[in-house]
Computed example of a mutant assay.
Amino acid sequence: MPPAQTPRPPSLTERTIEAVRDGIRNGTFVPGELYSVYQLADRLGVSRSPVREALLRLAETGMVAIEKNRGFRVVLPGARELAEIMAVRVALEVPAAAQAARRAGARDRAALEKEREAMQQAVRDGDEGAFLLHDQRLHGLLLNLASNSHTIRIIENLRDATRLIGMSTIRTSRSLEDVYAEHLPILTAVENGDADAASLAMRRHLESTGKLLLRGAATENDDVDRLWEDYVG
């Protein structure tokens, strides 16, 4: 048997990407504010080259906008961009939930239950940050059961692109308990090995989340239901 390969350490560019994503998640980088490439490089202790490369990759996902010779800004997606994002999430995560129901073993179900319990505890504590962390981990476990690493990275980028708006919907449109309750039918279906019920529950959860995100970003000229129908179906 060949020896196990040692995982490759992340490159400076990959470390910078993760640092910026963490900064967006925790509020260090505020949408609309202009940030200096030089200051970011100094903060991370790296040269400007990996920072520029990282920002170019993040710009491709729509998370940041680069201003030549000035710096970068975190971007909040508009309603149409959000509709496009949710269309991709529905296309990938709904069948993934069905696959998870077909493939989940006892260890997988135990891992999902651990995240569910952590989400429930975060609801009791009113801890939004902890709730969103375990929400992301739960979705990641479902994707791991069904998808390859490329799909998982795509979904992570899309979730990060909508995270700031998603946090505002929890504060203004629905409670942590509401979001938690939307996950229970998904987990019950996976526990029972019911692929059809899992895909339906995931579809309903994403539609609820997606339409709230669209309403949070919509202007007076945007018809949320029409956008959802046109892009997601």
Rank of each mutant, 00 (worst) to 15 (best):
I186C: 12
S173M: 13
E156W: 06
I170T: 09
L132H: 04
L184N: 03
L187Y: 12
A181S: 11
L213S: 01
L145I: 05
A217H: 05
L145H: 11
A130H: 04
R204T: 07
L132Y: 05
L214W: 01
L214N: 10
L138E: 11
E220R: 08
L200E: 15
H139L: 11
S199R: 02
A217G: 13
M167G: 06
S147Y: 00
R174K: 04
L132V: 12
T188Y: 08
N144Y: 13
T209R: 10
S168C: 01
E177A: 15
S208K: 08
L212C: 09
L184S: 08
S175G: 02
S168H: 08
E220D: 09
E156F: 07
L212W: 03
T169Y: 04
A195E: 14
A130F: 00
L176M: 10
Y180P: 06
R159Y: 07
R137I: 05
R153Q: 14
R159I: 06
G166H: 12
L176Y: 12
G140P: 06
G166K: 04
R204M: 13
G193I: 12
L145V: 03
P185G: 10
A197V: 02
L142I: 15
D196L: 06
L176P: 08
L158Y: 04
T188I: 10
E207R: 09
D160M: 15
N148I: 07
T188V: 02
L145N: 00
T219M: 01
E220N: 06
L132K: 13
F131I: 11
G210V: 03
R174T: 09
D135E: 15
L133E: 13
E182W: 09
K211G: 03
T172D: 12
I154V: 11
S149H: 06
G129Y: 12
Y180T: 04
R171K: 15
R174C: 11
R171C: 03
S175W: 05
D194T: 11
S175R: 06
E207P: 00
N148A: 09
A189S: 08
A146T: 04
F131C: 13
N192C: 07
L133W: 08
